[in-house]
Simulated assay, not measured.
Amino acid sequence: MVQGRCSAVAATVLLCLLSLHFESARSATFTVGDSGGWTFDTVGWTKGKRFRAGDTLVFNYNPSVHNVVAVNRAGYSACKAPKGANVFSSGKDQIKLRKGQNFFICSYVGHCQSGMKIAVIAS
């Protein structure tokens, strides 16, 4: 009886670990702007790419002249970071996508207006 319970617990633990492994194996990592990095005119970078919730976007840039700000649709359209927006400034930011719409801009003056913004829809 005790041996049966141990086997059931071990099987449950194994199934949980396999589930976590396969979930992480399905997620992908994308470097925004590809080899050019996060810079001007990346607004069209998402074309032809499929994104899923849990995928990671890597933003590579010079942190002394750029940043990445997670914004809502209004902030994306207006190129303005709302109060309380998440601002990233490491120059090597990794951001996991959430299901639905994800919007990012550079909040330095004029950068978003020059195409330094992306809208990503994750299924």
Rank of each mutant, 00 (worst) to 15 (best):
R73Q: 14
C106Y: 02
E23A: 15
G110Q: 07
M1E: 05
A8S: 14
Q101R: 12
H21W: 15
D34Y: 08
Y108H: 12
T46S: 13
W38L: 10
F30Y: 14
S90K: 14
G33H: 10
A10G: 00
H21M: 14
N102L: 02
S123V: 10
T46F: 01
H111T: 10
D41R: 07
A119S: 11
G54W: 05
L18E: 12
A10Q: 07
G36D: 12
V87S: 11
Y61A: 03
V58W: 03
S107V: 08
S77H: 00
G33R: 07
S24G: 07
S7P: 08
T56L: 09
K47W: 06
A81N: 04
N60V: 13
F40T: 14
S7Q: 11
A81P: 00
G115D: 05
V68P: 02
S107A: 13
R98L: 15
R26W: 11
A10W: 00
S77A: 09
D55Y: 04
T31K: 10
G84R: 12
S64F: 14
N67W: 08
R26D: 12
V32W: 03
D55I: 06
L20Y: 05
W45D: 08
M1C: 00
F30L: 01
Q94V: 04
A53M: 10
T46C: 11
G36E: 09
L57C: 09
T39H: 09
G100T: 06
Q3V: 01
K47G: 01
G75H: 01
T46P: 07
N102F: 07
R98G: 13
K96Y: 01
R5D: 12
S114R: 13
V32T: 05
K117V: 00
L14P: 11
T31M: 04
T46M: 08
V9R: 10
V9H: 05
V109N: 10
T56R: 14
T12P: 00
F88G: 06
A70Q: 15
A53K: 14
G37D: 04
S107H: 13
N60T: 11
H66R: 11
G75D: 06
F40D: 14
S89P: 07
A8M: 12
E23F: 00
V87Q: 12
P63V: 02
